[in-house]
Design a protein around this nucleic acid. Sequence first.
RNA 1: GGCCCCAUCGUCUAACGGUUAGGACACUUGCUUUUCAAGCAAGUAACCGGGGUUCGACUCCCCGUGGGGUCACCA
Length: 450
Amino acid sequence: MSNIRVRFPPSPTGFCHVGTARMAVLNYLFARKHGGTIVFRSEDTDKERSSPEFEEDILDSLKWLGLSWDEFYRQSERTEIYRAALRTLIDEGKAYVSEEESKKEAGVKVRIIRLKNPGTKITFTDIIRGDITFDTTELKDFAIARSDVDPLYHLAVVVDDADMKITHVIRGEDHISNTPRQILIQEALGYPRPVYAHYPLHLSADRSKLSKRTGDVAVRSYREKGYLGDALLNYIAVLGWTPPSEREILSLDEMIAEFELKDLHKSGAVFDLEKLRWYNREYLLQKTDEEFAVYALPILEDALKERGVAWDSAMGQNILHIIRERISVGDDIKNFAAEGEFDFFFADPLLDSTRIPQKGVGATDTTRHLEAVRQLLGDLAESAYRDAETIKGAVWDYATAEGRGAVLWPLRYALTGKDKSPDPFVVAHIIGKEVTLRRIDSALKNLANV
RNA sequence: GGCCCCAUCGUCUAACGGUUAGGACACUUGCUUUUCAAGCAAGUAACCGGGGUUCGACUCCCCGUGGGGUCACCA
């Protein structure tokens, strides 16, 4: 174990945000790469906005993404430590109590503790951006605690970072301007300065900071839509970081092996849902059939039941590979199912007689083709339906001779009742001989009635 | 507005003074045993602008412009 120590300092004032996940991955990769220690620190000093529910969501979400940490703290349980620092500051004349009118409630007097700002120029080195200089006079004597003793963000962060011996502060660039403030407190308290690395924020499509207004930012909502933790994590990590190998798909361990803070980009990247979908599909494709079944079947079952389609788990099992090749994420299954894309596997379709013939082909010819195909498929042994290729072989020569579209379109439509669907041989194979013949008969009857 | 940061295809990016500016996602078009999906192949598409430095700039410097962040008794 090295003495490198980093922190995950989320504030439990909302559900785990994609930005929180990114903060965590980058710190995680850096720490694990160097054998360091990760401190999870719940920054819940704002009693009004913080809640255990949010804290739990953040903990759950990060675990779901595959991340972990070594130590856990909650700022609300450390108030004595902050008060001691406050006393020191006041005793040494570096901070003072100021009685002011509350900004929240008019006419109410409150006691605020403010740091005596020496007004120096602060320069700190950022691993990603190099030296950054701020003139701190404009910061004035900023507040570090309210109601005399309740620590405010900057004080708590500085005291904790020192107390927890944090060596590297890796956070979003929205904290750049907080850094001089925190350094001022550090210096007043005589604490060492950690190494800083501020990475750019992920952006929405309109290039503004990723937020609720512009899209889904809650990790849990991606989880609910069926995204895989591995896929989301991979995308979040690689968006704004190019590993030396330039590989796009990497496991957590592979990312750890390649990670260097200096390879983090300097400009913000747009979080692109299409690319995330591609990642998710890649990860879904890596699953075994068994794993995919566990993933997809429950989603399919729910969606079908919602439509009132009788559920048949054996049939669900049979169409898994058809589903797998057309989805990127679990939610796609739900959407396809909701549109009735899978109904014909579970129930005979309702046919529109005008759509049975291929365009430009008459009802008479279509009837003739369907009868011929019915004959060929009827002659096929039931065991032949175990393989779509065999079914195709039985019909192929006839279809080629008579015109594939003219023969195969009505066959496919008879079996599915859809303009778009998997090919008729695969469908026949899945629904079996009996159902196949029944549906062809039904199409024939339908045509005769026109 | 002050301060800080950033700038290559629509999006994510490679390039570390000399390349036909490469790749990925998306898109378009073909091919593949009707349609759809998948697969395969091909294609469209970028160095923000202006000055320098240099034999030579996407690469270095300066100035614009544009974008973003931040300016709490929130974190």
